[in-house]
């Protein structure tokens, strides 16, 4: 077992393979928010990498810091009341933190894009869908307005909106929830970005529509070679869509592994708890859950942050903060990782 002081380089491919340069590379990212208790660290030394064509699932309960991480990567955190306290964010070869506002707005929507849970709040109700997408294209590419409109219709067509040319002239409120999310995705891919961050993109949708959107995101990722960060709390969606998984708890990554490995054998008790808590569609067994609540940033327990809620905790767990340890091609932040035999289901 090789212990690396928290700053672990996570690799999606094995060292023997041809190394692919990752499109997203976050190293030791820390974010602080101002609270009633002063500046508090809400994201602590988060490192992750995403290779082109890969989908990284980021999972955790509310308050785990998964959305804050993504907003920090897009530099969308509020300027007042929050700050990046350390680490580096490199997206498509650019150091995001060093960019000025102009360069940043050129980057956002062009080389990196984001889709949110509520498409209605990100679409302007006063303009047609086509106008909004064409506007995004015009902002980033030197094209005529006619060309931009053509691109808008093309992207709507790409995301499977029937009669795209006609629908482009409609307003957001005339779209159903699923169609709105498709339109959001169309806007996100209209400038052919390299990196896409999706924050709970299907949580507000019905399951039949969710299945359509997941399929769309997967095929887009493959076809366009996108690196995608997929934030969700739904383990079923992760199992369906992602290539790798990073599990976050209380502002830290506690486990990181390939999709098949993590479901076959979780290496952190929190991951095991999350997987056990998923109600099964077939058969009936007594329900499991993770008792307790995520600690507040100013109220972090000593040692392992999950230790107060962990059924496997021993006194040593509370002694000192734990690093993320590399085990073969995955990593875990658990003291007892060697001795515990964790399983996704009984």
């Amino acid at each position: 077992m090789n212990v690396d002081n928290g700053a672990v380089l996570l690799q999606t491919s094995e060292p023997t393979q041809q190394p692919v340069k990752p499109l997203v590379s976050v190293k030791d990212l820390s974010v602080e928010f101002v609270t009633d208790h002063g500046w508090q660290r809400v994201i602590n030394n988060v490192s992750l990498e995403i290779a082109p064509g890969k989908i990284l699932g980021v999972v955790g309960e509310s308050g785990s810091g998964k959305s804050v991480t993504s907003l920090a990567m897009m530099r969308l955190l509020p300027k007042q009341g929050s700050r990046i306290a350390g680490g580096s964010i490199e997206i498509d070869g650019e150091d995001i933190q060093s960019l000025d506002d102009k360069a940043l707005s050129q980057m956002r929507g062009n080389r990196m894009a984001m889709i949110f849970q509520e498409p209605m709040t990100s679409l302007n109700p006063a303009y047609t869908i086509g106008e909004q997408i064409a506007e995004t294209v015009r902002r980033h590419k030197r094209v005529s307005s006619k060309e931009a409109w053509k691109r808008a219709v093309e992207s709507l067509d790409d995301v499977g909106i029937p009669n795209a040319a006609g629908r482009a002239r409609r307003y957001p409120h005339e779209f159903s929830g699923g169609m709105r999310q498709r339109a959001m995705i169309a806007m996100a891919i209209s400038c052919k970005p390299r990196v896409l961050i999706a924050d709970e993109p299907t949580t507000a949708l019905d399951v039949t529509i969710q299945a359509q959107i997941l399929q769309l995101l997967r095929s887009m990722c493959e076809d366009l070679g996108l690196a995608m960060m997929f934030i969700t709390h739904n383990m079923g969606v992760v199992a369906d869509t992602c290539d790798d998984v990073a599990v976050m708890y209380a502002g830290e990554i506690v486990e990181r592994a390939g999709i098949y490995e993590i479901f076959a054998q979780p290496k952190h008790p929190y991951t095991e708890g999350l997987l056990r808590a998923v109600p099964k569609l077939q058969g009936r067994s007594e329900l499991a859950s993770i008792p307790g609540t995520t600690p507040a940033p100013w109220d972090m327990p000593p040692g392992c942050r999950f230790q107060p809620r962990c059924p496997y905790a021993v006194p040593e767990c509370a002694e000192s903060p734990l690093p993320l340890r590399q085990i073969a091609d995955r990593s875990s932040r658990c003291l007892r990782v060697g001795e515990l035999d964790l399983k996704a289901s009984k």
Partner: peptide
């Protein structure tokens, strides 16, 4: 049936 088949199962081997 369509509704049931649209619910993703939390097991990548079976889901895929």
């Amino acid at each position: 049936r369509a509704l049931l088949s649209a619910v993703p199962i939390a097991d990548p081997v079976r889901q895929r």
